[in-house]
């Protein structure tokens, strides 16, 4: 296990963490899996590309999560709330349809070919990481990814609102009897979730390239992560993201032919062992 490989795995993992934790948060509160999450990430990436070429990288890193976070408001008010009484599967399918429309809109605007995004000049070189030369941008990605999730975990564990979110995730009925307003919480959590997707989108540009199929590739990986982690369990999702990043990176190096299959094999292995996933998810 070389240090570079571990760092590469962590860089990929931190991307997945930002996506999967947002998915798990909405699922915990609403019981709805947002199949449009991949498309939101894609919109974030292309928005980052446009804003980055106009204003430069750093303003884009702050603007895109903000804008995407506000779009979470739309998701909550126009999709999740009106369809609250419907079955969760139906709402999931509606979000899937919205995702298709968004992704197609992006392709319509930007064309169906990959775009490359240049990173900020300050992070273009490489740094000395315990005797190994390592790209500075990836290190930055790891710091942002793990840092934002650490902040999220602190918020969930030590703030009053975070406690309410955990309570609703564990048992929606009892917590609403205790006077917790799940709807209001959900407004904030939706914004947080789409904001994280936007952050992942704007950060992925210089790391990988951005292309029209990125939403589907991401959402399928996130689905696998959320299932492995146990649907609705935030800490399960984080654990699964890290596991997934390592399996994908190490697989690509050691078994290149089978690398694309490894995530699915991981999924099958975990499900045979623990059908409910790694973490402790929602009771229902």
């Amino acid at each position: 296990m070389s240090l570079t490989l571990i760092a590469n795995s962590l860089a990929l993992s931190s991307l997945y963490i930002m996506m999967a934790s947002g998915l798990a948060l909405i699922y915990g509160l609403r019981g709805v899996l947002n199949f449009g999450h991949g498309a939101i990430y894609m919109v974030g990436a292309y928005l980052g590309y446009t804003l980055g070429s106009i204003m430069g990288f750093w303003p884009a890193v702050f603007m895109v999560p903000l804008i995407m976070g506000l779009s979470g408001l739309l998701l909550e008010v126009f999709v999740l709330r009106p369809l609250n009484a419907r079955s969760h599967i139906e709402v999931a399918l509606v979000t899937f349809g919205i995702g298709l429309i968004l992704a197609h809109g992006i392709i319509w605007i930007y064309g169906g070919f990959p775009q490359s995004v240049s990173g900020p000049a300050g992070l273009a070189g490489s740094v000395d990481l315990l005797g190994v030369e390592y790209p500075a941008y990836r290190l930055f990605l790891i710091v942002i990814g793990l840092g934002s999730v650490a902040a999220l975990a602190c918020w969930l564990n030590f703030s009053r609102m975070g406690m309410f979110v955990r309570a609703v995730s564990q048992n929606p009925q009892v917590s609403s009897m205790m006077g917790i307003n799940a709807g209001r919480l959900s407004l904030f959590v939706s914004c947080l979730s789409t904001g994280f997707a936007g952050l992942a989108g704007v950060l992925v540009g210089p790391y990988l390239s951005i292309d029209p199929g990125m939403d589907i590739a991401m959402i399928i990986n996130c689905m696998i992560i959320v299932v492995i982690g146990g649907t609705g369990s935030l800490f399960g999702a984080i654990l699964a993201s890290i596991l997934f990043g390592f399996v994908q990176t190490f697989g690509a190096v050691h078994t290149p032919g089978l690398a694309v299959l490894l995530p699915y094999l991981l999924l099958i292995c975990v499900l045979v062992w623990r059908p409910q996933g790694l973490g402790r998810g929602r009771a229902a």
Binding site: H88, I89, A92, M223, I224, V227, Y264, L267, L271, P275
Partner: peptide, 14 residues
């Protein structure tokens, strides 16, 4: 045996 939502996603992954 899995939960309905997990089931849906696993078939997608398959």
């Amino acid at each position: 045996r899995t939960r309905p939502l997990a089931f849906m996603m696993i078939t997608l992954a398959l």
